[in-house]
Nucleic acid binder design. Structure first.
Lengths: 202, 202
DNA sequence: ATCACTCTTGTACGGATGTACAAGTACGAT
DNA sequence: ATCGTACTTGTACATCCGTACAAGAGTGAT
């Protein structure tokens, strides 16, 4: 209906009233939206249009702020990495204050797994980085996050070992959609930690 | 050039001579091709046309044998899982014959990592399964592969622990495109295994 | 007030994609 | 021999994609 548009060359009515300018906020909103879309659809099914819709912005905004789709996705992954590293600083504090760090670490992991979307995107990053060289620095930074946090306490090598079991347990929980096996994880971390001495009579 | 299609309604000349019928071979070829495309492009960028081209078959073959794209991809992942489980039986034998199974397991992992495409697709499966319920049985089966293999020797729980470190180390190597840290991995596996007793005076 | 510039918004376009389908062909049953 | 069926092959089509771009509209300098 509405026999509107008598002159197709000029139809400024349907145009959305222009919003206040805020380039940096837009960049951030797009990065956040990209992160969410990647978490939900995966890197391969992330599109300009999905991100724009998610951010509530017109399609053109995506290409204005990010020259190419890969850049947009990279921004989303970068945003996720920043979020994780902010979390890690909190973790570090919590670990420092805990009398039993292996158990505390397990608790943190379980908490981390509450929001699977966040977890999902990190592993998505790993797999994507395996394919795309440009993402490798991001993946490396992510991979170094937990070990760097643990290194002051237990040394870098052991920290990497602990991070590996942690990743393995989380990957299992993620892929099979099950709960984290906390008791086994804590025990495994203990056995990997340098001050672990099993009872001799076992 | 080439004066185009004088009679567009009838042009049976260019038609490829029909190949011998072999439905099962086609199914298998498509599954294999799907596996390869997924390994190279990822689940999200796998298309009918890429798989068909890879298999050297016409586009229609993909939809004839697999009703939907998701089915085609699932078939590819299933194919990869079968390949892995075949490998696992060989691993099992190699482990049984080795006097030092942690070291042997590390060697096998390193060998496994030689072909990153194969490794890649397995982790792709995990991430995809986290998003898609239909893939979860496949991911679970994959996750159980290594633990089931190790369980007779060290028990299921410890086997899962060892599998977790293994996965963690492999994930790191995959994401950062580095070599597997074999000495650290072997040491970590040893510390997780039940008969490990650290030297008391350390 | 004018201008230059940056940001916003909508739309266009060539191409790729999932799926449907028509036309043709091998092959076993009769 | 013929016939029905299951398989093969090419193409059609609506939709979605990445990217380009034109047309406004704020904003600060002059």
């Amino acid at each position: 209906m509405t026999p509107r548009r008598p002159q197709p060359s000029r139809a400024p009515e349907g145009r959305r009233p222009q919003r206040a300018r805020d380039p940096e906020a837009r960049r951030a909103a797009l990065a956040k939206a990209a992160m969410e879309v990647v978490a939900e659809n995966g890197v391969g099914r992330t599109t300009h249009r999905a991100v724009a819709a998610r951010a509530g912005l017109p399609l053109g905004a995506t290409t204005y702020y990010f020259p190419t789709l890969d850049d947009l996705i990279a921004a989303g992954l970068h945003h996720a990495l920043d979020a994780l590293q902010a979390d890690l600083r909190i973790w570090e504090e919590r670990l420092r204050q805990s009398p039993d760090w292996p158990e505390a670490l397990t608790d943190l992991a379980q908490e981390y797994l509450k929001d699977r979307r966040q977890v999902h995107i990190e592993y998505e990053l790993c797999v994507a980085a395996a394919r795309d060289t440009a993402l490798r620095p991001l993946a490396t930074a992510w991979m170094d996050g937990v070990p760097d946090m643990l290194a002051p306490t237990i040394g870098l090598d052991t920290a990497r070992d602990v991070c590996a079991v942690l990743d393995g347990f989380i990957l299992r929980a993620l892929a099979t959609d099950t709960e984290l096996d906390t008791t086994r994880l804590t025990a495994a971390i203990r056995r990997l930690s340098p001050d672990h001495h099993p009872v001799p009579g076992s």
